[in-house]
């Protein structure tokens, strides 16, 4: 790693317009994921109220689909939604805020102002 390229004197700096842009995009990401999350988390009890098969059928002679979902499925789903939202948000932030002057290969040759 070429540590000569890291410049401590570069103060990181965001402008209000950039932050507003990232904020709007992140808000859209968060809201969409929340809608998906809410649909699933309320969908499971809603199905058990409306669909007899959901609580009555047996998977492999044991649990009903509803019970299996509440006992394992939803936790896996929460983790998946969380992971998706976290990676997407972080990737969006990395692309929409900050600059190109953090790369270590090029900045080393640069004159510091």
């Amino acid at each position: 790693m070429d540590d000569a390229g890291i410049r401590l004197d570069v103060d990181e700096h965001d402008t209000p317009a950039e932050v507003d842009a990232a904020f709007r995009t992140l808000r859209r990401v968060a809201v969409w994921h929340f809608v998906l999350f809410l649909a699933a988390v309320l969908g499971v009890p809603a199905l058990s109220l409306t669909l007899g098969w959901w609580s009555g059928a047996r998977i492999d002679g044991g649990m009903s689909p509803g019970f299996a979902m509440a006992a394992f499925g939803l936790y896996v789903f929460f983790l998946a939604v969380g992971l998706a939202a976290a990676t997407l948000s972080s990737a969006v932030e990395a692309r929409m805020l900050g600059g190109a002057h953090d790369d270590t290969t090029e900045a080393g040759t640069e004159d510091t102002p």
Binding site: D3, I6, L8, V10, D11, E12, H13, D14, P16, E18, V19, D20, A22, F23, L26, E93, L97, G98, D102
Partner: peptide, 19 residues
């Protein structure tokens, strides 16, 4: 908003840590 939704401080901290 700059503090709460901006990543300037984060990047600074990461830069310091890398250094």
């Amino acid at each position: 908003w700059l503090i709460m939704h901006g990543t300037a401080a984060d990047r600074q901290a990461e830069r310091l840590a890398h250094l």
